[in-house]
Design a protein around this nucleic acid. Structure first.
Lengths: 120, 120
DNA sequence: TCAATAACTCAAGAATCATTGAGATAACTC
DNA sequence: GAGTTATCTCAATGATTCTTGAGTTATTGA
């Protein structure tokens, strides 16, 4: 993750509709959701508006898309999300884990990190 | 962490100078740095520009400030940063940790989360 | 108290971004 | 092929944001 990628990702996440889309797709899991289904979940946003935001998110690497018949299916790019966090928190404790342990423990609320499985 | 706070935080992080400030303060640790020292690290940015960005970051809850003589010392608000990540990744695996373990493991690169120490 | 230092506030101009609506492209069904 | 559905593209408009420069407030030391 480079600074420019991180800036793009944060800019993408700083817009209400886009942040909601990402969170929706994070909970939707690897199967993802079609653009139309996402649009309906966003108070019935117009298709051009959805397209604008989805392409913005894809450009930022936060979501991935694949075509399925007439629909385009979007899913969250978890490795980018993780890379973003790693970029932000890099060197957060400088060898003094007690400084950021409380913060890091909060991240365990969803998953139990497993050592040795990451190649990010 | 509520949606509006998260949007403010991401907006704050989506600007080059502000992102650099946050990362600088994350590595600086709890002691923090004076506004002037931060400004010098930002290619000698003008004081009004620093003030604009620092107050933006403080508004977003990403940094904290305290006065020390003539200087104002800023430090990173790690609990807000952690809350932001937690907000973004909430329900990321829906009971299937294998989905997001690779992502979460990346976050362990700095610190080893310790169970039972968090009150976030 | 006066001068110097550190940082903040304010207003104006330039740049960037989101929404809308009309139209285009791609894929499926009959 | 014709019609329908799903999504994308483009241009215009209105809103928001960043930078600059001048001026202000707070703190320290002589």
């Amino acid at each position: 993750m480079h600074e420019k990628q991180a800036l793009n990702a944060f800019a993408a996440l700083s817009q209400e509709t886009r942040l909601r889309i990402v969170r929706l797709l994070v909970t939707a899991g690897p199967e993802g959701m079609s653009a139309g289904a996402i649009g309906e979940a966003m108070d019935g946003a117009s298709s051009s508006r959805m397209s604008f935001h989805l392409s913005h998110l894809e450009q930022a690497g936060l979501v991935e898309s694949r075509r399925d018949g007439r629909s385009i299916i979007y899913s969250a790019a978890l490795t980018t999300l993780a890379g973003l966090v790693e970029f932000l928190m890099r060197d957060c404790c400088q060898g003094h884990p007690e400084v950021c342990n409380p913060a890091m423990a909060a991240l365990s609320s969803c998953c139990e990190p497993t050592k040795g499985t990451s190649h990010v």
